[in-house]
Design a protein around this nucleic acid. Structure first.
Length: 268
DNA sequence: AGCCAGGGTCTGC
DNA sequence: GCAGACCATGGC
């Protein structure tokens, strides 16, 4: 099946390579492979459409529509954010970024692993994590581990993934989800500030990891995750605070700016 | 070799 | 409430 769209509305490379997800793989130019909702999917970006393999209409409307945030009017949002000239520059740099709605447990684990870490190594640890505790769906393609599979482990069991001091945090996350201390569906119903405090019950989840998780998996777009790059950008580009036009779309604005300051050659 | 990375915890003021 | 040490690892 296919999605009729151009790369300025949904760019696979810009969306998959802006630091919000860590498991999509570039197979060749404009071709990406990923594992979501337990299924291996291949996507090919063409000038006026995206071809999807491994997907039928039902799977698309049940899962991918929301995963790619296709019901949100990004053109309108980008217009509003572009009232700020810096944001406009960041948007023009990568206009095809969309905020993904990913699996909550996968996202919590991914951003636990992200702490004090760099993106290439984050990807490597997550890959080892999936090979160790996920299930092989196809040849060399592993699902993300379930909370149950992780909760059974000891710290020593996780040694092969080389996650360092973060291993104990992964276990705590899985255990609190399995024993009901943290209820994913309940968290989704909470307002943003309540949800942040709620997720921070998990060891290894502070404000930054909670905000990234909420933005990329709990449908909260009113957060503004502050990593080292964004902190530098705010100090340099927005010394007097963020512009008012960000107010309704803080998380989306953040992602365009994060991508721009991290990947462009701008000096902060 | 040394600094840095999509930070958080723990301790001590 | 806030500063500072400390945490594992490997990319660059």
């Amino acid at each position: 099946m296919e999605i009729i769209t151009t790369a300025d509305q949904l760019s696979l490379s810009q969306t998959f390579d802006c630091g919000q997800c860590f498991r999509w793989q570039k197979i060749e130019e404009n071709v990406w492979s990923g594992i979501i909702f337990g299924r291996v999917i291949k996507m090919t970006q063409l000038p006026d459409k995206i071809i999807l393999e491994g997907v039928d209409e039902e799977f698309f409307s049940n899962h991918l529509q929301r995963y790619f945030d296709l019901d949100r009017d990004y053109s309108g949002i980008k217009n509003i954010l572009s009232a700020d000239s810096m944001a406009k520059t960041a948007i023009d740099y990568a206009p095809g970024i969309r905020i993904l709605n990913q699996d909550p447990f996968e996202t919590l684990c991914s951003f636990i692993i992200s702490q004090n870490n760099n993106i290439p190594r984050i990807k490597g640890i997550i890959d080892k994590f999936c090979r160790l505790l996920g299930t092989e769906i196809e040849e060399d393609c592993y699902s993300f581990p379930t909370p149950e599979a992780v909760a059974k482990c000891s710290i020593e069991d996780l040694a092969p993934i080389k996650s360092g001091f973060r291993a104990k945090y992964l276990l705590d996350c899985a255990q609190k989800i399995c024993d009901g201390t943290v209820d994913i569906n309940l968290a989704k119903t909470m307002d943003t500030d309540t949800c942040r405090e709620y997720l921070m019950q998990i060891k290894g989840i502070g404000p930054k990891v909670a905000d990234c998780s909420m933005l990329f998996a709990f449908e909260k777009i009113d957060v503004f995750p502050k990593d080292v790059w964004i902190k530098k950008a705010m100090a340099s580009l927005y010394p007097d605070g963020l512009p008012e036009c960000f107010n309704d779309y803080m998380g989306i604005a953040q992602q365009y700016i994060f991508n721009y300051v991290r990947n462009s050659d701008i000096e902060l």
